[in-house]
Design a protein around this nucleic acid. Structure first.
Length: 377
DNA sequence: AATAAATGCAACCGCCCTCCG
DNA sequence: TCGGAGGGCGGTTGCATTTAT
């Protein structure tokens, strides 16, 4: 049995909003607010609209300070960086771009950015450079995998038996200052916590909600900002999450990171309070972002496979580089397509990993501890 | 100038989560 | 503890506009 509809579908108007409807809705909300009940609102003001439709119209179009169109290069970069980092969590991405709505960003991505960044107009030469870059990165990842093997020699339980966000462990997350564009290392947990909050999280202790008004947001380093031959590891949350090979064959993935319930009081989890990654974990059946991350992360016992996937990722990343920096000098057909990223996001292996991860709840601390182990500096 | 194809975007749909009685 | 209602979100659709032929 399906759930009851939120409104009488037969008696609600659909389609574009008329100026009169807009004016009615806007005037009422500006005067009285929404009253916390969108469903009842249209009846109150005599609109033959579904409450959800009113909410959407207000949020995406009528509310003050909405910006439409005209995305700047900087906004492009932020969107790309965050998309790479967290996937299609448009509301979270929108939270970092004041005046932009999730719907706008989603449309912009689907209609412009995706094509702009991953279109078929590519130089053959750049494609070759991409392959070379991917190759060198692959070598680098192999080296790091070897380091990962060393990591596995840590005492059993080093990772997943420590309390969440263990304060005694060193943590360092390289990020870039949104305003100064200077590399910045977040070493203290409070800063990391703040950064994570800004990426959409919420902590149980203070129940802080995501803010959209911060002016000093540290955002993940844009892949496009590094040259093809000079990729910097760990400049992105992905990278932070990319070095994981845990003791006891545990598989640690970014989706674990995103799903981890963080207890700011170090109570060891199990809290029923809102969690750090609540925003990222809301749609646990909508696996795209989680998979997007985990696909890039999981090594476990499948290094060769992961290296193949990394090939694809870095090719795609390189494409982003070429596309978003505007450094192209000529164009030619690229072998890289959007499918490269999609293949990363939705592979069978990924689903398998995800299911595994769902059964092995990790700790936020563990991810950072592993990152630290790999020499973030 | 006419038509088809491509594009952009507002709006809808349906699922999931949280809240509350 | 459970279930219903409402809110929020991402994905998709459909239409108006623009561009290409």
């Amino acid at each position: 049995m399906g759930r009851a509809p939120c409104c009488d579908k037969a008696n609600v108007k659909k389609g574009p909003w008329s100026p009169e409807e807009d004016a009615t809705l806007k005037a009422y909300i500006e005067k009285h607010g929404t009253g916390g009940n969108w469903i009842a609102l249209p009846q109150k003001i005599g609109l033959k609209r579904c409450g959800k439709s009113c909410r959407l119209r207000w949020l995406n179009y009528l509310r003050p300070n909405i910006k439409h169109g005209g995305f700047s290069e900087e906004e492009d970069n932020i969107i790309c960086s965050l998309y790479i980092s967290i996937g299609s969590r448009w509301s979270i991405i929108a939270a970092q771009l004041p005046g932009r709505t999730d719907n706008d960003i989603k449309n912009y991505w689907n209609t412009r950015l995706k094509k702009k960044l991953l279109g078929k107009q590519r130089k053959q030469q750049q494609a070759q450079q991409s392959r070379r870059a991917a190759s060198s990165l692959k070598q680098e990842m192999i080296k790091r995998s070897e380091s990962a093997a060393n990591f596995a020699n840590l005492p059993v339980g080093f990772v997943n038996q420590n309390p969440y966000w263990a304060p005694e462990l060193p943590v360092a997350v390289p990020m870039v200052n949104y305003q100064t564009h200077e590399p910045q290392l977040i070493k203290d947990q409070a800063s990391i916590k703040n950064m994570l909050i800004k990426l959409g999280g919420r902590f149980s202790a203070d129940n802080t909600t995501t803010t959209t008004t911060n002016t000093n947001f540290l955002y993940p380093v844009d892949i496009s900002s590094s040259s093809s031959s000079d990729h910097q590891f760990y400049q992105n949350p992905i990278d932070v999450l990319t070095c994981t090979s845990a003791p006891n064959n545990n598989i640690y993935a970014a989706d674990q990171f995103a799903s981890t319930h963080y207890d700011a009081n170090n109570n060891g989890g199990g809290s029923s309070s809102p969690t750090m990654f609540q925003g990222l974990d809301d749609h646990n059946n909508n696996l795209q972002a989680d998979h997007h991350l985990s696909e890039l992360v999981v090594y476990g016992n499948d290094f060769p496979h992961q290296h193949q996937q990394l090939d694809g990722f870095y090719q795609a990343a390189e494409t982003l580089n070429n596309g978003s920096t505007g450094t192209s000098t000529t164009s030619a057909e690229s072998e890289i397509s959007w499918g490269d990223i999609n293949s990363l996001v939705y592979s069978t292996q990924m689903v398998s990993d995800y299911e595994t991860c769902q059964q092995r709840i990790p700790t936020v601390h563990s991810v950072f501890a592993e990152s630290t182990y790999f020499g973030l500096k």
